[in-house]
């Protein structure tokens, strides 16, 4: 039996057109979740099928693709998705944020500010920001339609009453264009401010839940909060051990079994670029700096 021949970027043209139509609608109504006929992909649901379908629908032969997971280019899933598009679309891939025209990401926004013309594609596990408060799709769709977001604020109110602060640290809900409450995907709340009026086009794909949504360039993205309890993004209070950066989101790496810890930039490209430019952290020269851990 012979194997079938696959289309450019795997999906057939009809499917890509269907996804593009959903994307256009999503861009026209920032933050609104557009239902789309998500396809089975050769990767499991929850592993980036939504992001892959969006990337497949917007990518062209001249694009340069970067794929990150947890901010890193060399995590297994990022490697797997990058190879998938190198194989099915034959596009050039890169690890450098500035060089990429399309960046598919899971759980992070790159530290290097994005530029006009770049597209950031988010992989989204749960597109519905109200789902944890209301399990019913029929009900949450009505809440979005009528902009009834009181319940979301009740959750935030309760957080402050119980803990003195809002205890959402990732997938922190945002209000887009003053109208729709949106899940930014499980990026750390540290990354939320990067979404606000970004010059890049931000596209969100949720394959299993069959939803696409978007934040067009230069759109207001405001993290929900109270006037007297404003949004505060956090990160570990440390500097990157490798490049010394203090303004980046840090991964905590357990370096031995005696409680030894090392903080390093979660964005591997950003860290490598800084080191190339001569920046050095307290643990410069550590084996982690070699890039490949496995």
């Amino acid at each position: 039996m012979s194997l079938p021949a696959y289309s450019f970027a795997y999906l057939d043209e009809q499917t890509k057109r269907m996804i593009r139509r959903a994307l256009l609608k999503a861009v026209a109504i920032p933050g609104y979740q557009v239902p789309f006929a998500s396809r089975e992909m050769p990767l499991a649901y929850g592993w980036g099928t939504g992001g892959m379908q969006v990337t497949a629908a917007v990518i062209g032969p001249d694009d340069v693709l970067k794929v990150i997971d947890q901010g890193a280019d060399d995590t297994t899933n990022a490697v797997s998705i990058r190879r998938f598009f190198a194989l099915t679309a034959g596009v050039r891939t890169t690890e450098r944020t500035a060089e990429a025209t399309i960046i598919q990401t899971r759980h992070r926004i790159p530290e290097t500010p994005l530029a006009a013309g770049q597209i950031l594609v988010y992989q989204v596990p749960q597109p519905e920001p109200l789902r944890k408060l209301e399990p019913r799709e029929t009900e949450t769709r009505r809440m979005h339609a009528l902009a009834e977001y009181g319940l979301m604020h009740v959750k935030l109110y309760e957080d402050i009453a119980r803990h003195g602060r809002i205890t959402l640290s990732y997938d922190y809900p945002v209000l887009v264009n003053g109208r729709h409450v949106m899940a930014p995907s499980p990026i750390p709340s540290f990354d939320n401010p990067k979404m606000h009026r970004s010059p890049a086009l931000q596209l969100f794909g949720a394959g299993r839940e069959k939803r696409i949504y978007a934040v067009p360039p230069y759109t207001d993205v405001v993290s929900l909060a109270f006037e007297d309890h404003p949004f505060r993004p956090w990160k570990a209070e440390a500097a990157c051990g490798l490049c010394g950066a203090t303004e980046t989101y840090l991964d905590e790496v357990v370096v031995d079994d005696r409680g030894g810890r090392l903080f390093v930039c979660s964005d591997t490209d950003y860290c490598a670029e800084r080191r190339k430019a001569g920046h050095r952290g307290a643990a410069a020269g550590h084996a982690l700096a070699a890039g490949e851990g496995g």
């Binding site: 109110y157 402050i160 006037e227």
Partner: peptide, 12 residues
């Protein structure tokens, strides 16, 4: 507080 928040009050 829910109805107040639903009506748009945002000062905790």
């Amino acid at each position: 507080g829910e109805r107040l928040m639903a009506a748009g009050m945002r000062h905790w």
